[in-house]
Amino acid sequence: MREATRSADEAGMFAAGVRLGLDHLKLGMWLFLASEVMFFGGLISAFMHFKVNNPSPESSLLDVVLVGLNTFVLLTSSLTVVLGLAAIQRGDRRGLIGYLTATILLGTAFLVGQGNEFATLYRHGITLSSSLFGSSFFTLTGFHGLHVLVGICWALSTLVKALRAGYSQGSYLGVEVFGLYWHFVDIVWIILFTLIYLI
């Protein structure tokens, strides 16, 4: 059986979608991300509901400076993804490998920073079940951290494929789709950082 998903050019008359200029893997990713927006929307609503209606003094224990630094780390990782994509578009495979490695390291650094933050809060007695603040804070940031973890795994598999020369100047869709996800996770963090730490 032939692949139903071969590239649009190859599929000839089945390629009605070409008119939209959309590759279906990218469209699929956008749709998936739309649903992720709603998932985080649900968790964020829950967090904000309690933040507004049951303000907690515990939120003063949050260390905005350290987390701000962590935010900077994550934003940088988005930049490295952009640079990696630009590299492979130029045909620079080594550049891609380098930038993907940087992305993985930065993502890991973010998770370590988050782990450190969680540990500090635990020492102050804030846990999932200590208060509504703990419940909603750890659930929301925890699910974001989980998404970063998935992103790191995805970056690793992209890196492996890049090492095996799986991408070239004319074929880098996998990097692009991974990039969509990674930027999404970043954007979610910017929203969370604003809502949890800044306001």
């Binding site: 009605a16 979608g17 279906h24 469209l27 699929g28 749709l31 998936f32």
Partner: peptide
């Protein structure tokens, strides 16, 4: 995800 992508990109 599959249905929307299919309808948008796979029409004859």
């Amino acid at each position: 995800v599959n249905f929307v992508t299919t309808v948008f990109t796979m029409r004859a």
